[in-house]
Design a protein around this nucleic acid. Structure first.
Length: 291
DNA sequence: CCACGATCCTGCTAGC
DNA sequence: TGCTAGCAGGATCGTG
């Protein structure tokens, strides 16, 4: 599933494609959940004649800045993908939006499960408001232990759910949340206000490091592929240490990886390395008397 | 304000 | 071999 590293890799690949020619056509399926506050028809009016000036990422959103100050925003959801196609290649069957360029190429947004999103903003101020309402600070940016604790440390929700809450920290999804918690030995169900200061310090270091490492590998294209291939890799070179590895040995201690469900999300952890020990760690932080 | 479950959607897999 | 039930989860919305 696309999380921050995968979306960043997509942005880099699209930048390398140098899609600078004017948009000459916009096609898509009209009744489609993917389009939010816009449709292929209105998008055609807004996009035809425009050029892409910059491609960037915020959280798991891709931003296409156009030459008139407007922005096309895309979220890949669960199964969304972007592909630059030359005029002769056939589009795949789940394409929801196609932008055609004057140089004969086109950009396809494909999404079988329709969890993705396409949103258009005429003005940067409206785009920024939309993103500000949804996204906290970017998870790739360095964060101090103090800042992370201020963000999570007063909340009672399980730390795993805090990590994937985009309003708090933008970019982490189910996979990297489990990987980060395993790396610093925190049980995923630990309430945010029961995570210790030293654990927050470890987590603050681990989050950007894990995302950066995945980014440098080109992202995690398919959890299933990596699980199938892991036997041929030394443990420290495996992209996934716990995610999806239920029943397989923990790379650190050999205990079979366990799976639990938190708010409907499958959560993988090592029952030995990540013990649920928060009830014996003293009083919870209340958030009223922080210093 | 905070927490949490339900909902959307369809390809894939396990099980019969 | 072919069918079906259930799983997968990011974001949003409604309820307590």
């Amino acid at each position: 599933m696309p999380e921050l590293p995968e979306v960043e890799v997509t942005a880099e690949n699209l930048r390398r494609a140098e899609l600078r020619a004017p948009i000459v056509a916009v096609d898509g399926q009209l009744p489609c959940r993917v389009f939010y506050a816009c449709s292929p028809r209105t998008l055609a009016d807004d996009l035809i004649g425009r050029c892409i000036r910059a491609i960037s990422r915020r959280g798991k959103y891709l931003l296409f800045d156009l030459d008139d100050g407007s922005t096309l925003l895309m979220h890949r959801g669960m199964t969304g993908s972007l592909r630059v196609r030359d005029g002769t290649a056939a589009p795949d069957r789940y394409v929801r939006l196609t932008l055609s360029f004057a140089d004969g190429r086109s950009l396809d947004f494909s999404d079988p499960r329709l969890f993705g999103r396409v949103v258009f903003f005429r003005r940067a101020i409206d785009r920024d408001r939309y993103l500000a309402e949804r996204l906290g600070r970017d998870a790739l940016a360095p964060i101090s232990a103090t800042e992370l604790r201020a963000l999570f440390g007063t909340r009672r929700r399980p730390i795993k759910l805090l990590l994937i809450d985009q309003h708090l920290l933008a970019g982490i999804g189910n996979l990297y949340a489990d990987e980060a918690l395993w790396s610093v030995r925190i049980h995923p169900a630990t309430p945010g206000n029961r995570v210790s200061d030293s654990q927050y310090a470890a987590l603050a270091t681990a989050i950007p490091a894990i995302l950066q490492a995945s980014l440098q590998r080109g992202g995690t294209t398919s959890a299933r592929e990596h699980l199938a291939a892991e036997a041929s890799l030394p443990p420290d070179q495996r992209p996934l240490q716990v995610y999806g590895r239920v029943g397989r040995p923990c790379p650190r201690c050999g205990t079979p990886i366990a799976r639990t469900v938190l708010s409907g999300r499958g959560s993988y952890f090592c029952p030995t390395c990540q013990q649920p020990c928060w009830s014996s760690e003293g009083p919870p932080r209340t958030g009223h008397a922080e210093g």
